[in-house]
Design a protein around this nucleic acid. Structure first.
Lengths: 83, 83
DNA sequence: TCTTATTTGTGCGTATGTATC
DNA sequence: TGATACATACGCACAAATAAG
């Protein structure tokens, strides 16, 4: 799942994978993405790595984190699309 | 924000900047300094560098780390002034 | 209110590889 | 060779918010 030989670091690969799921509608707006524990299990990486991957998506405005709840896909209404 | 040309290494500059905020009262005793993530964003340096900067302030007794909470400005009451 | 479970937030310590001075 | 810095990654401990009972 994660290619540790290539030039793309794991945290970027994970960010890309999650972004693809969001873009494809697999994880629609308002929905939660898998928890860090589940992602740990799925990708076989440390939380630190997931934290960085999530940070990338947060930076892009694709997701938002809520302590005690999870990480949610930002809805178009909430998206900073300039309006 | 960080001068990478001068003789003062970034971790020292950051330590100085934080020390100034504490001295000026911008971050009063008992208050938390920005998290490492926020400082990463603000200064544009690696976590490794931030941790060294914080270590300087800890060495000076200006701040204390509380696990799971953050890094706090030491209160005069708690200062190791010999009491 | 308290306990239990889940989930994110925050920092510590450590390690590897690369690069500059 | 050493200090400094960046990028990446793993494992660990503890705190806070949320949810359910």
């Amino acid at each position: 799942m994660i290619d540790r030989e290539g030039p793309v670091p794991p945290y970027r690969q994970i960010a890309n994978a999650l972004r693809a799921r969001i873009a494809s509608g697999e994880i629609p707006p308002g929905r939660r993405i898998p928890s860090l524990v589940e992602l740990e299990d799925e990708f076989g990486v440390a939380r630190d790595t997931l934290r960085k991957a999530v940070q990338v998506l947060k930076d892009e405005g694709l997701v938002e984190t809520v302590t005690g709840m999870g990480i949610y896909v930002v809805q178009p209404d909430n998206a900073p699309s300039g309006g």
